[in-house]
């Protein structure tokens, strides 16, 4: 009885064979639809801050650093990879990549910064500001009841936490290139 049980256990084990991977040497690709590190396409981004305002973990920051330059900063150290930003982006500028091996000894590797040239408003002379000109109006959000402007003012803005030191130049730093003619 005892022996029989043990043999059965052994049989299960041996039938399965070795299932663990020889991991770092033998990569395992992520399946389709995997929610890895989000990637911004700066050519599509319009700087509407929809992602920044609805990131549950508040890892996306937006800030105007001068009249025409707006910076989007994404900090994946605290990202929960929920993919909410991808859902919300009206321009489909964000995609979830299949990158999940994110360990690094340099914190800068975990951030993505996008420099965006913004249009200046013909009438008031400022660049398009999300508080005034609401790009969110263009969002079609399933399951999301977006806030009224009054309400959103009450919500603490992640953008107020933005710190310029975070904008060091890194490999992931994206800025618009001059269009080749």
């Amino acid at each position: 009885m005892w022996l029989w049980n043990k043999l059965k256990q052994l049989a299960i084990s041996l039938r399965a064979g070795v299932v663990t991977l020889h991991y770092p040497f033998e990569p395992r690709p992520a399946p389709a639809g995997f929610r890895g590190q989000p990637v911004w396409d700066h050519t599509k981004c319009i700087g509407c801050a929809g992602c920044a305002n609805h990131c549950p973990a508040r890892t996306i920051f937006l800030r105007d650093i001068c009249q025409e330059v707006r910076i989007l900063l994404y900090d994946s150290a605290r990202c929960t990879y929920c993919g909410r930003c991808v859902d919300l982006c009206p321009e489909k500028a964000i995609t979830m990549s299949d990158k999940f091996e994110l360990a690094t000894d340099n914190r800068q590797d975990l951030t993505q910064a996008i420099e965006l040239f913004m249009m200046t408003c013909q009438r008031c002379g400022r660049c398009y500001d999300l508080e005034i000109k609401n790009y969110i109006d263009r969002l079609t959000l399933l399951g999301y009841r977006y806030d009224s402007l009054e309400v959103r003012k009450v919500i603490k803005k992640s953008t107020s936490e933005f710190q310029p030191e975070m904008l060091e130049k890194t490999a992931t730093y994206q800025r618009p290139e001059r269009l080749e003619k």
Binding site: L10, V18, T20, L21
Partner: peptide
């Protein structure tokens, strides 16, 4: 190594 093999590990 043997224990690992019985546990289906490398």
């Amino acid at each position: 190594k043997l224990t690992a093999r019985i546990q289906s590990r490398q």
